[in-house]
Simulated scan of single mutants.
Amino acid sequence: MPVYRNRITAFFMNFLPGLGHYYWGKKARCVIYMLLFFGSLLGGFMLALVSNSGDIFIAGIVFAALVWGLSMFDLFIVLLKDYPGEGYESVYGPPPVSNRRLESDRFFTILLSFLPGLGHLHMGLMQRGLSFLVAFFGTITMLIFLAGITHDSVFLLFLGVLPVIWLYCMFDAVQCIHRKQAGDLVQDRTLFDEWEMGRESGRRSKVLATLLSMIPGAGHMYLGLLKRGVQLMVLFLGTFYIIDVMRLSLFLFLLPLIWFYSFFDGLQTISRYGREPLIDKPLVDRIGSHKHLLGLLLLALGIYYISMNLIVPYLDVHFPELRINYRIEKYLRPFIVSVVLIGGGIRLLAGGKKKPSAFQMERRNLDDDRF
């Protein structure tokens, strides 16, 4: 039976240096690259322990990165050589030229798509490729420009959008090349044209919704669940902001917990999309009944923020003997954490005892009268 080796599989396997070469039949190169990569990491670590110097370990990491890059580049050269029978082991001879050409074109398109837009340009989708290029590099330019103008690095946090654009571009390129090679008509539409068509037809892209779900609430909002999406986004960003402002590092575990809840809730919602009507059920059904609690929380946060940024620095300069910053770090923040934990525990215990409904009360009274 013929043995078929796929270029794309070899490429992704080589993210562990040498493994792609082994898959492609280059066993000697596999041994060399693995020894150099893992040997530099292990040797740098052992020498760093012996000499008690972290610079040696950093040098080992740098050398391992160079070996990784060299391994990938070497594999590129091997895979892009379209020799007859390359990647095949068969007693029946090399595969048909058309099959090898299709596979080579698919591999080259996916390889170019690591730079957003180039894979689409290779397929002749000029408008779509340019829209991905502009979206990716335009976002980088805009955020760096805003951070430089305002001298505030907080804008660089939005660089987290770039992996979403990159992943969507990669998935879209794979889908386009498979549809093109299957003989389907692939229209050259920009992202905005496609979203506009989806809006007019009332359909949403499940792939885009999945990628947007990596930002808490964004996937829900894209599917039209605005209340739930806004509340999830406010919950995540608000928790992050409060922990950062109040320096409550003890509650950092809440951030991944909220993120995973939002992401998997988004995946469940996407799986139901198109099969059943989606209900925009918010996390908190009646915000009006919690207005007073929310108002007190915002008032307390405002007072805390003003005190820590205006009053405390003034007192610390004019009355250094009071050591206000030290007392806040030593006593006030642990007190706040304790109050939040105890108050949350009391609230959960009190909420566990549900009051009987009117029907249950009436039935209980009838039972008492019967006896």
Rank of each mutant, 00 (worst) to 15 (best):
F253S: 14
D367P: 00
R29G: 13
P94A: 15
G352W: 12
Y83T: 12
H120E: 13
L79Q: 10
T239I: 02
M126E: 07
R333W: 03
K281E: 14
V91R: 15
L283M: 13
P313G: 08
C169N: 13
F132Y: 14
D74I: 11
L167W: 02
T141Q: 03
L115C: 08
Q231M: 08
L111S: 11
K355C: 00
F158Y: 09
L156A: 08
D244R: 15
R100E: 15
F251K: 09
L185A: 04
L255W: 05
S213V: 04
L115T: 10
F137L: 06
I270M: 10
F359I: 04
R275Y: 11
D368H: 05
Y92G: 08
D184Y: 12
N309V: 07
I243Q: 09
I328Y: 02
F236E: 07
L130P: 05
T141P: 00
F240M: 10
D74T: 15
A350R: 15
G124R: 11
L250W: 07
F15W: 10
H120L: 03
L366K: 14
V207F: 01
V186P: 00
P277C: 13
L133D: 01
R363V: 01
K355Q: 13
D369W: 00
I258D: 11
L299S: 07
I58N: 14
I328K: 04
A59V: 03
Y273L: 04
A65K: 08
P17K: 12
E200M: 02
C30A: 14
Y222P: 04
S98T: 10
D280M: 13
M308T: 09
D316P: 00
H120Y: 04
L252K: 15
R179Q: 12
I336P: 00
F57T: 12
A48Y: 03
V50A: 15
H122K: 15
L133F: 05
R203N: 03
D105C: 09
K206H: 04
F260C: 10
A182R: 11
F359W: 06
L298V: 05
L315P: 00
A300N: 00
S98L: 10
H178Y: 06
L36G: 07
G266F: 10
I303F: 00
G266D: 12
L296D: 05
G87K: 10
I306A: 12
L252M: 13
F137R: 08
V207C: 00
C169Q: 11
S307Y: 00
K227D: 08
E86S: 15
L102S: 12
L125I: 01
K281H: 13
G85H: 05
N309I: 07
G266Y: 13
S51A: 09
R199T: 05
M34T: 15
P313K: 09
Y273I: 09
L232D: 05
